[in-house]
Amino acid sequence: MKDLNLTEKSHLMSDTKISAKGVQVYYGDNHAIKDVNVDIEDKTVTAFIGPSGCGKSTFLRTINRMNDTIDICRVEGDILIDGEDIYDPAVDPVQLRAKVGMVFQKPNPFPKSIYDNVAYGPKIHGLARNKAELDEIVEKSLRKAALWNEAKDRLQAPGTGLSGGQQQRLCIARAIATSPEVLLMDEPCSALDPIATAQVEELIDELRQSFSVVIVTHSMQQAARVSQKTAFFHLGNLVEFGETDKIFTNPEDPRTESYISGRIG
């Protein structure tokens, strides 16, 4: 009886990681995100799907406030992480981004060595006390990102000298090296071959044990494979959000249905 209570409680506490309430995003006059309300759970993978230009990346970037760097971009509404409003004036976006990691749509490694790419985050956040610890973090992150075998002999080689898919995995390694609580991934597999994709999907599944992962993808199969929850965006609206299985087998909205069956694109 007591035990049950405890598990129930911990389940409740870990329930909602990110909660968006009435989020509107404008690029100048362009209303890119229209009144989105969504609760993203902890320790789950949430997939954002939808046609190109519907605002998936834009909404993803509101979660770590990367939109702040775009001058014309304006965000309204509230986004809570662990119940704290990240748009509160007291919140320092730099601190937020250490907690909410991001992998971008286009691979963007630093023009430094592979090692330095991964070590940069831990270094600036003081996560390693010495070189040995840093080495360990770098190795662990590269292993998780399925890049270790290819990179272990050329850690000092420039990260920009890797192939597109390897660069993307390097960016994933870089993002997880800081042990974020939430990982935002914007089409992380669009430049990867099926084997690397499978490795990254495996990684995503593993990451789910400890963090909440939000992934944008154009591949329905991928969304179906890796995610537990799926959100379908269309023209800036969050059309439907729910269990992945349900969205793919039995969507409520006709637009979701037509998108999944390939009629909107």
Binding site: T69, V94, Q95, K99, F110, P111
Partner: peptide, 27 residues
């Protein structure tokens, strides 16, 4: 210097100044 470098630095939680001095300025 491509903006993606700034995004990358900010994305791992570097401050604006760190992004500029560690990544943009050397380039």
């Amino acid at each position: 210097v491509p903006p993606s470098i700034r995004d990358a630095a900010l994305g791992v939680g570097a401050s604006k100044m760190q992004a500029v001095f560690h990544h943009v300025l050397p380039l």
